[in-house]
């Protein structure tokens, strides 16, 4: 079974998966998208990159994904054999409209040369995890926005990668759906024990989801604060209304305002 549970160690005892050290990224025309960014990703982390638009958080994600390479600095995987063993969830569901839900989830396996019947169990298992097993034969256009995003998440999970990158995946959804998917994502993560780097511009989302929040500022994109959210998992809807959550959100907001103030 591809979808297995990995035990999550407490913060501070987790083995490192990936290290980003002193990374600069500038584009032609002299725009500095990232300056001196360092980030350690450990197994089982849920890291949020939080910042205003233009702060380079998506650039950082593309660098981690290997879709572009740093101008200077380095990005190193702890285990060279596992380098690049990752998946991405974009803001758009990014499904192939001509393929059914099951075929879309099969894609990562298909590109590795595996036939559908070889991996059918994994595909159906992960669809069950995201609650879409009844829709395996449906086409994306028949699904709601939230369901499409679940398919996209299922596709990211199906190969059980070492790292999952999420680029504002819930930003385009309505609030109720977003809260539901936040909740479901945490449950999935608890079940599977995956490692997630999550880009968002929502303070509330970052605090609710992650155990580490990295606050970034724009022009040039850089990290200005990093703090941990100690609230234990599983976090439920009750956590959203707790005093602890409010306090954490306020701290993150302050950091974010500072980030935007510095940029302005």
């Amino acid at each position: 079974m591809a979808v297995q549970r990995r035990a999550i160690q407490p913060l501070g005892q987790r083995p490192r998966v990936l290290q980003m050290a002193d990374v600069d990224k500038s584009f032609n025309g002299g725009v500095v998208a990232l300056r001196q960014m360092s980030l350690d990703v450990h197994e089982g982390d849920f890291i949020s990159l939080l910042g205003p638009s233009g702060c380079g958080k998506s650039t950082a994600l593309r660098l981690l994904a290997g879709l572009s390479s740093p101008t200077s600095g380095r990005i190193a995987w702890e285990d060279p054999h596992g380098a690049g063993d990752l998946s991405v969830v974009f803001q758009e569901p990014t499904l192939m409209p001509w393929a059914t839900v099951a075929q879309n989830v099969w894609l990562p396996f298909r590109l590795k040369g595996m036939r559908y019947d070889q991996v059918k169990d994994e595909v159906l298992e992960v669809l069950r995890l995201v609650g879409l097993e009844k829709f395996a034969g449906a086409y994306p256009r028949e699904l709601s926005g939230g369901m499409k995003m679940r398919v996209s998440i299922a596709r990211a999970l199906v190969t059980n990668p070492r790292l999952i990158l999420m680029d504002e995946p819930f930003a385009a959804l309505d609030e109720i759906t977003r809260h539901k998917l936040n909740q479901d994502l945490l449950e999935l993560k608890a079940k599977i024990g995956c490692t997630i780097v999550f880009v968002t511009h929502s303070v509330f989302e970052s605090v609710f989801l992650s155990d580490r929040v990295v606050v970034m500022a724009a022009r040039p994109g850089r990290v200005i604060r990093e703090f941990t959210i100690d609230a234990p998992y599983p976090r439920s809807e009750a956590y959203r209304t707790s005093a602890d959550y409010a306090a954490q959100c306020r701290a993150a907001s302050d950091a974010l305002y500072q980030a935007m103030g510095e940029a302005a």
Binding site: L67, G84, T94, L107, L111
Partner: peptide
């Protein structure tokens, strides 16, 4: 072809033919 899907194909190491 959707550019995000292109990126996804690249991440999964798709060949030019795939």
């Amino acid at each position: 072809a959707d550019h995000n899907l292109r990126d996804m194909f690249q991440i999964y190491g798709a060949t030019r033919w795939q």
